[in-house]
Every structure is written in C-alpha cells, then in structure tokens.
Design a protein around this nucleic acid. Structure first.
Lengths: 191, 191
DNA sequence: GACGATACGGAACCGTGGCTCCGGTTGTCA
DNA sequence: TGACAACCGGAGCCACGGTTCCGTATCGTC
C-alpha cells in the first residue's frame, strides 16, 4: 500500500493543486473534529469548496486523508516531547508532556476517534510515532532513575493511557482532565 | 423506541422460539467477542444455525440485539457491586470491584467495543446501569469517609475509567491489568 | 390427527458511502 | 498568446450490510 500520499519524488504541485490540498486538509480537520471518524468524504469536499474527485486526486482513499491528519498530529506530539527534554525537573518534564499532549489532543477529538477506530491510519504516522516513542522513553528513564516514577511503568503504557483518555474526551460535559490527573498520580513512585 | 425486546406482556414463547432466542444470544456473544461491534447480523444468524429473519423476529434491529447483551453484562456488573458491599475493608471492597468487573469485561471485549461505539445500545441497560451506579456510589462514599480514597473522585469517573480501560483490552499482547493498577493507585487518598 | 397460530428461512430490497470516470477548466512554459 | 499537461467537478457506479417479506415448516391444543 502506498503510505505516502504526498509523493515528494515528483515535481512540485501546481499552484492551484497546492492550494486545494491545503484547503482539503483544513476542511478535513474541521469536519472530523465535529463529526468524528465516520464523517463522509463528501462533507469534507463540500467544506473545502471542492469536488470529491479533487479530494481523491490528493488522497487515494479515505484512510490516506485521515492518515495525513494523524501524521501531522503526531509530529506535534513528538515536537512537544523533544521540548519536554529541556525541562529540568524529571517529573515535571514527563507529567507536563502528558498534560500538553492531552490538551493538544482535546483540540480535535475527531481525529482521535478516527485514530482509535481503525489501525489502518496509524501506519501513516509510523515515523513520527517512532520519534515520539524514543523521546518519551528517555523522559521515562530519567524520571525512574530519579526515583520519582513507579519502576514498572513503560513506554508501551503511554498509547494505552492516551487511548483511554481520548475515548473519554468525546463525552460531552465530562472533565477528562480529572481522569488525566488520576492517572498521573498513579504514575508517581510509591513511597 | 421500544427498549424491551423481550416483551413480557405476551404469552410465553413457543418452545422452538425460546430455544432459538437463546441460541441467537449465545452466538451473538461469540461473534461480537471475536469480530467486535461491526460483526454482521448474517454472521450471528449463521453461527446460531438460524436464518436472518429469525434474528429479526426476536430483535427488531441490531441495536436491540447488542442492547440485550449489554444489559446482561451490566446485570453482572451490578450484581458484583452488590456483593462488594459486603466486603469489610472499604478500600478493598472498591478496588476489588474494579478488578472483578474489569476481569468480567475482558471476557468479551467485543461487547465492550460495541458499547463504546454507539450510545444507542446503552439505553437498553439503563435500569441495570442505575443499580450499578447507586451501589458504586455507596462504595465510594464509604471509602472516602474512611479517608482511603481521594476526595475528588466521583461515580461519574467510573464509566470513563472503564471506558478507557476497555479500549486497551482490545490491543493484543498488551497487559491491561497494569493499566488498571496504575489507575487504582491514582485513586488512593494522597497522604 | 387435524387445524390455527406461531415461528422459520433466506432471497431480495434499499439506503449509504467510498470511489471512479471523463468532459471541461486552468496554470505554466515557450 | 498558444498549446499542452495537470487539475477540477460531480454525476453515477458498485459493494456492503441492515431490514423486510412471504411461502413453508413446526408447535400446541382440541
């Protein structure tokens, strides 16, 4: 399966094509954020002021479109993680990252839901995911070495944790931040 | 919408009908457990050795079938909660219930996923849900009064917590029990 | 054992939504 | 400015899956 919809090997996109591509992505963000992962391509196209055909010209199928959004999102996560490495306090660096990324998630629950639905979209973000994982691992090791985090916690737990969290973000009127704080408290080293 | 598919007001089901109803439910449990919420009615029918028409005779639509499964599941949750009230130690009573019900969930992730998907199925379990909520509230108050649970935790957090947890149960090879223990630690009263 | 009520089976219907196709338009380069 | 390649739009195609319909089989009662 072609994982990269952008196809950098070709000559640069024509001006109108690039413009439309951006419009489509922006529209997709909005539409998925509002309607969740089962929003229709037609809706995205309409919101972008573009025909369905144009959407499919840029993204061979729905997953590719969602994949691109997911990828962008993970790029953000990974960037945040790298910034967190510069925070002095090992615990604050880690907990802060969780909070920041959670907040970053909450912006568009739609993408999160879409992501939770099918694993197909994940592969598009593989590279960013690796970067995020590596950085986070370092944050965790640092905190554990400092003795402020429970020793049995591992990077693999993060996706689960965020997955759980994000599934609660969709519930209207629920304060997911409390849920997050509960989990964060659970991560502190037992005395 | 008709919430009760069993329709107790009518005369008892004919012997073959009752038999088929049970078969369908059993098959549905298996099929949904294996394939998740988007398993098809046709699959359920085939697994039950029955025609689709028969499934629809007993359950007016897919949601009603899922609803019945969900309802049964919640009856189990609520029963467990009532048993937990008899445990002496307030903390163990509560934490134990979480563990028990989580384990009970893990049995058929399919139903959990189906449940997480659409809110339509929830209404079928409304009565059991109320019973579960009331009992759990008492467990929480007891633990908080004893000073062993953080004071800002509320019954409303439980569904979120379980929702998050169940969304990780579907991931093959992941130890969701660790996730649960992390959350449980997060609930203990801060010293 | 006969008869009416009840239940069964599964082919077919139909709405939905992803995706394609092609005639028309627009950007780019000489 | 002309010509061609790249791109656009959206009607329509098609597969999928929930639901219906009705001729046939089975149950329970007299």
């Amino acid at each position: 399966m072609n994982v990269d919809a952008t196809d950098h090997s070709e000559r640069p996109l024509r001006a109108d094509a690039r413009r439309n591509r951006e419009r489509i992505l922006a529209a997709a963000r909005t539409v998925f954020a509002r309607q969740g992962g089962d929003a229709q391509i037609d809706d995205v196209a309409r919101a972008a002021g573009v025909g369905v055909g144009t959407v499919y010209r840029h993204f061979p199928h729905k997953d590719a479109l969602i994949g691109e959004l997911v990828s962008q999102k993970f790029r953000g996560f990974a960037d945040n993680a790298e910034r967190a490495l510069e925070v002095e306090d090992p615990w604050e660096a880690f907990a802060g990252l969780l909070r920041t990324n959670a907040e970053f998630c909450a912006g568009d629950v739609g993408v999160q839901q879409a992501l939770a639905r099918g694993p197909a979209a994940w592969q598009y973000a593989a590279a960013e995911l690796d970067r995020l994982r590596d950085t986070t691992r370092r944050l965790i090791e640092r905190a554990q070495k400092a003795g402020v985090m429970r020793a049995d916690f591992a990077v693999e737990d993060i996706p689960m944790l965020m997955c759980g969290l994000s599934s609660t973000m969709g519930v209207p009127g629920y304060d997911w931040r409390r849920h997050l704080e509960i989990m964060i408290s659970g991560l502190r080293a037992a005395p």
